[in-house]
Simulated assay, not measured.
Amino acid sequence: MKKILFTIAMVAVGFTATAQENAKGGFEKQDWYVSGTAGYNNISVEGIDSDVSSFTFSPSVGYFVSDNIALEMGLILGESTTEFFGDTIEASQFGVTLAGNYFFTPQSDFSFVVGAGLSYISTGNEINGNEQPDSSTFAIAVAPGVNYFISERLALRALVGALSYSSTSADGSSSSTNTFGLNLNLSDVNFGLTYKF
C-alpha cells in the first residue's frame, strides 16, 4: 500500500512540474491584473404569480503582494426585478469591495482560488414606479473558485457560491436585517475574465 501511495505521489509531483513548465500564463509576486465577473439569476415559483430576475457585474483590479496572495479592489453593479402578484419591485445596486484572494497554484494555467472580502452596497428601490427609501448593506463573504489561463495574459474565472454574512438597513430606519448564508452549489455561479498586465 505504501508503494502504491508513493507512486501516486511521484506521478502527481511530476505532472505538476510538467504543467508548470508548459504553462501558457500564470501569476507571480508584483503582477497586476484587471478582472470582472457577471452573474444572472432567475427564480420562478410554480403556482404563484412570482418571478425574480437579477443581474450583477463586478469589475476589479488586483495586485499580487506575494506569490500566492492578491489584494483586490472593485465595484458592484446590479439590477433586479421582482414580479409578485401584480406588483413590480425594481432595485439598482452600486457598491465597492475590498478583497484578498489566495491562489493555490498561481504559476500554473489552472488554479483553485479562495477569496474573502468586505463590501458596502447602496440599493435604490421602486415599487410600481414609486421610489422607496434607499438601503445600505455591509457584507463579508468567502467564495471558492477557479482561474484558468487560455493565453499568456488572459484567463477565465468562475466563482461558485459563497459563505456570507450581511447586514442591511433602510435609510432613516433604526432596525436592520441580518443574513447568514452558505451556498456552494451550481445555482450561484459567477463567470468572468482576468487580464494580466
Rank of each mutant, 00 (worst) to 15 (best):
L75G: 05
V160I: 09
F138W: 14
T7A: 08
A99F: 05
F103V: 03
S164D: 09
D134Q: 11
V142P: 02
L186Q: 08
A158P: 04
F191Y: 11
D49R: 06
N178W: 07
S166Y: 00
F15Q: 10
L98D: 06
V45H: 01
G117F: 06
A170C: 02
S187Y: 02
E46M: 07
T16E: 06
F191A: 09
R157D: 09
W32T: 02
F138K: 09
L186E: 13
S164T: 09
T56A: 06
W32G: 02
P144S: 12
S35M: 08
Q132S: 12
I127P: 06
S187D: 14
P59D: 00
I121C: 01
F94C: 03
G39Q: 11
G124D: 15
A99R: 15
S92Q: 11
S151M: 02
S122Y: 01
T7R: 13
E90K: 14
F197S: 03
E46Y: 03
N68M: 10
G86N: 05
Y63S: 02
F94G: 01
V96A: 15
S58A: 04
N101R: 14
D87G: 05
L186S: 12
G25Y: 00
T82M: 04
F191C: 12
T194H: 05
T18V: 12
D49C: 07
G14F: 01
F191R: 09
I89F: 14
F27Y: 13
F85V: 13
S44Y: 00
N185A: 10
M10W: 08
I43W: 03
A170E: 08
D171A: 07
V114P: 02
A141P: 09
T105N: 15
K24M: 10
S169M: 06
F27L: 06
G117W: 05
F149E: 01
S92Y: 10
R157N: 08
L77N: 05
T179E: 13
G14S: 11
L5P: 03
Q93C: 07
T18P: 00
N125S: 11
V52W: 11
V113M: 15
G47P: 10
Y165M: 08
S151E: 00
N130G: 06
